[in-house]
């Protein structure tokens, strides 16, 4: 594939998902290297709280973008760092508007929300959207190395679910404000204040961010999701289920990467395993017939650094640009 072909066919957002240990990180790294080698300015992003992108590239990566090669950058989203930034912004805004005594008094409440079960996910999601918005300027494409399936499905369906909830909150606030406006009919300054209600404004901004994310994720011209699995029995069923679920949420699945396929030259010790893999590979080809299927060989060593990534990245071409 030529550079131009890649640039025409590639999606701006490519996700690699699947169970832990199957090779999501290795695939995301290899694919990002493939794009960069074709002249695409590429950012590879890890959304898995248990990051291993730095291991795959054998280079330090952190919560700030690090350059990994020509036209290639990487970042590992750190939920805690993002949450702290968010809290700081909230507190600064608060000090603008209310007394320090009040700020002090509600510190406890802030702690509670900060520790709430959804907080880590929400913090990751915010950074995720921020990065998505940066495409088109700094980068041409983003490759996402995601967390194991359950976590990622929640992350990707978050905007749909929370969007509806926030809409409900906006409606309630609007109703209260309409009544207030009625009551304040003869009080012009008050009526104006109600018109510019910051709560409705803030909730609406939030809702708009969610719908933007949802629009991008469900646009097959913009986003594509690839599943990584190994040629074994259970992963096939699990992948089929996950593909179905993503489809129901309107997210397009493009390809299946079968990783760690034992090569024939592996020798007699692995021969029995290799034969059973062949059977599962046949099953995968029938079951996912409508998708692109890429097979990656099991290498004789872990994937750590450009040398091994360089072996896999040309094979990623079959996923399409």
């Amino acid at each position: 594939m030529t550079s131009t072909e890649v640039k025409v066919h590639m999606k701006r957002f490519t996700f690699f998902g699947g169970k832990g240990g199957t090779g999501k990180t290795s695939c995301a790294a290899a694919y990002s290297l493939f794009l960069a080698s074709k002249g695409v300015k590429t950012l590879v992003v890890s959304t898995d709280p248990a990051h291993s992108l730095a291991d795959a590239f054998d280079k330090p990566i952190g919560f700030q973008t690090a350059q990994l090669g020509d036209r290639l950058w990487g970042i590992e989203i750190d939920a805690e760092v993002e949450a702290r930034k968010y809290m700081k912004a909230v507190q600064d805004k608060m000090l603008d508007l209310v007394s320090a005594a009040i700020v002090d008094e509600i510190k406890r409440q802030i702690e509670i929300a900060y520790m709430s079960p959804g907080a880590e996910e929400a913090a990751i999601f915010d950074k995720f959207i921020e990065l998505m918005e940066s495409v088109g300027e700094t980068y041409d494409a983003i490759v996402f190395d995601t967390a194991p399936t359950g976590h990622t499905l929640r992350l990707l369906t978050l905007p749909e679910i929370l969007g509806a909830w926030i809409e409900h909150l906006i409606e309630k606030r609007k109703k209260a404000m309409d009544l207030m406006k009625l009551a304040a009919r003869y009080d012009k300054p008050l009526a104006e204040r109600i018109e510019n209600d910051p709560i409705i404004k803030t909730l609406s901004a939030r809702r708009d961010k969610f719908s933007l994310a949802r629009r991008i994720l469900t646009d097959p011209q913009e986003s594509i999701f690839h599943f990584v699995l190994n040629a074994e029995k259970l992963p096939i069923l699990e992948t089929a289920r996950a593909v179905e679920l993503l489809g129901r949420h309107g997210i397009a699945v493009g390809g299946i990467v079968v990783n760690k396929v034992i090569p024939p030259e592996a020798g007699s010790f692995l021969e029995k395993r290799r034969l059973s893999q062949e059977q599962y590979l046949r099953e995968i080809r029938t079951r996912f017939a409508s998708m692109k299927i890429v097979e990656l060989p099991l290498l004789d060593d872990d994937i750590q650094g450009m040398e091994q990534l360089g072996l896999l990245s040309p094979l990623m071409e079959d996923l399409g640009g």
């Binding site: 968010y86 809290m87 508007l97 409440q109 509670i112 959804g118 910051p198 803030t202």
Partner: peptide, 20 residues
């Protein structure tokens, strides 16, 4: 429990005075 409590924090500056 609130599914979006993290996102609600950004509203706090506008309601802090009335919270108590």
């Amino acid at each position: 429990p609130n599914p979006v409590s993290y996102y609600m924090l950004e509203l706090l500056p506008y309601v802090a005075d009335d919270l108590e």
